[in-house]
Design a protein around this nucleic acid. Structure first.
Lengths: 353, 353
DNA sequence: TATTTTTGTTTAAGCGCTTTCAAATACAAT
DNA sequence: ATTGTATTTGAAAGCGCTTAAACAAAAATA
């Protein structure tokens, strides 16, 4: 492995001092034109790359953002990350990626420990900012030790969390309205004449699930009634939708008219289960979802779902993070998006009694 | 933002020298038991985290691996990354993520430039190793400047590439057999009695596509014949499959018996197109794919595809990377996996003439 | 008791940069 | 020539850590 050339050697070759070279590297003004040119030439000829560690030591800036994500295999998160990556790169930041896999059902203590270690790691690395996407913070009851550790990191480095606000957490939150999304799809199904509606998917004890389920129940209580046997939680994957729907077939006498899935992937599993029982959506059972995933328009049937405008979520989060990093007074972005119903096929047309 | 405590202050508080504190941090032997305990206590009480930048400066180790990936929204890559992340973390490495988005069809020069800048960034950051997943390296004709830049980085930092070997590239390659995967699915379709077979998806000029297409043609030439009008390349997404199949409906008099899709996502688009034309797979047109994606078993119809054993690819790549980083003599992993046909529903049963 | 060896500790140099401060040079105005 | 001012430059300190080398104290050997 080749040793890297240093600023010292550049200085020697350009017959000047280290400080002057440093000045041209940082575009400091007070360097004479000819000297600047000469130094630049030497830098280019030798393909010199300043060592960021050394720079970071003195400037206290690493040009690095940490992204802590609970499940990098979830398209919702990768979508966010790719947004974040592009904007970061444009602003000269590189991402440190930490996948805490909280979504996989480890024992809660394990997950907590994993994330706390991530915070420690981040602290040691002196990144300039932190983005937290999902994980322990999403639980209805956030672990106390965890919260302390997060707040402690927040004293050192600004943190922006994409998720639902947590009491006692001092980081900045960027929220989506999880209630409204579930309300929209439930209302839509009711408006189409469906009465007996199931709710499938999502993990108990996780805020998103709790909030969507609460909204579902609220709307159902107003316009119809709830059958608790039709509520089946588990997680956010297709398997969960498949198992959930199969369970209904196995355990219920009267099937529901419609199903609300926690997201499109769960809906996918539900479609598969329906097909296995020679039933079709929407003709036999309508299916709507609360969270639009890519390629929903190619599903069979094309899925009716709720778009949560994830496309600008990363941008907003970074907007705030950069402001925190600059110690700016926080200034609102204009981008407040409301969830939006995407009507396709899977809920069917108006049902005539 | 709180200032971090330093080793110097710890030393003062523990009434000892900086070097002794450093020794207990690094588990060096020659520290008396009582002093070690005392120092450890002070460290714990003050929640001291050694500054990794400073450590990196002197040790020339950053405990960081760079992952350069061309499309983080592609489940194939996120799957790899999550494997890589887990193993790295266990070995005390954190990932620097760079998404070059080559998969999006920028002008080639733009992509090349983007990756070259990524290499520069990586070089500045003095990471300990680099993993390259897709991108420019996947082209049939790799750009010369790009290759130079990659080789140059490789002089400084060990690089492992998951992809097809490139002549003149000095990094280490971990390959999958792209020919065999396409052969398997093509043979399977032929064995079931299908004769007129289309090939949809993939990007021209990209190695994976070229190799799979070559294999497809080879097998077709032996057992049947090729109709060039049935070969439609584009990219790797569902839209591409949808458009491709629609194009066949619009432009061809005699539809094919079967289709080979470049991957499951493209197949998904094909299914949607078939449905739009009131056709069904496998009954009307059989569809097989070369590259298994998660949840294929929930598709309607359940897709017959080829498993390329991605589940151990990341592990193997890291195995080699760690060896390179240790300047070990390269030692083979025992894990040579061959692609494997997963027979589900979408190719149908044996066709009777 | 003197001498060597072992063990524990500190001092100091240095990793590659940035930045302060003081010195040197240039130029203009007197 | 003399002074004042503005512009360039370089020496040196320091960022937080590791580590080689020097030193001191304790233990082992003669």
């Amino acid at each position: 492995m080749k040793n890297n050339i240093t600023i010292k050697e550049i200085a020697k070759m350009a017959d000047t001092s280290v400080s002057t070279v440093s000045r041209v590297l940082n575009n400091s003004p007070s360097v004479s034109k000819e000297k600047r040119e000469r130094i630049k030439k030497v830098i280019a000829n030798n393909n010199f790359q300043p060592n960021m560690l050394a720079r970071g030591m003195v400037s206290n800036k690493t040009q690095t953002l940490a992204v802590v994500v609970s499940d990098i295999n979830n398209p919702y998160f990768t979508d966010l990350i790719s947004q974040i990556e592009v904007i970061s790169r444009k602003n000269n930041y590189t991402l440190l990626l930490i996948n805490t896999m909280t979504a996989s059902k480890n024992a809660p203590e394990v997950n907590v420990q994993l994330e706390i270690e991530a915070f420690k790691n981040i602290s040691e690395r002196h990144v300039d900012g932190v983005l937290l996407l999902g994980g322990e913070i999403d639980r209805d009851l956030v672990d106390k030790t965890y919260l302390n550790s997060l707040n402690e990191l927040n004293e050192q480095i600004p943190i922006v969390i994409i998720g639902q606000k947590v009491k006692g957490c001092k980081a900045l939150f960027v929220e989506r309205d999880q209630f409204l999304s579930a309300e929209l799809i439930t209302q839509h199904l009711l408006a189409l004449g469906h009465k007996r509606i199931a709710f499938i998917g999502g993990e108990p004890g996780i805020k998103v699930t709790t909030q969507r389920l609460t909204a579902f129940k609220k709307i159902m209580n107003i316009y119809s009634q709830i059958d608790d046997k039709l509520i089946i939680l588990n997680d956010y994957y297709s398997q969960s939708g498949y198992d959930g729907m199969n369970h209904l077939f196995d355990s219920i006498e009267v099937l529901p008219d419609a199903v609300v899935a926690i997201n499109d992937r769960v809906a996918w599993g539900i479609f598969r289960s329906l097909q296995d029982h020679n039933l079709k959506s929407p003709d036999d059972i309508a299916v709507g979802s609360c969270d639009s995933f890519p390629n929903g328009e190619f599903m069979v049937p094309r899925i009716t779902t709720v778009n949560q405008h994830n496309e600008s979520l990363g941008k907003i989060a970074l907007h705030y993070l950069f402001q925190l990093m600059n110690h700016d007074v926080l200034e609102n972005t204009e981008e407040t998006h409301f969830p939006e119903l995407i009507i396709r096929e899977s809920c069917g047309a108006k049902k005539t009694e």
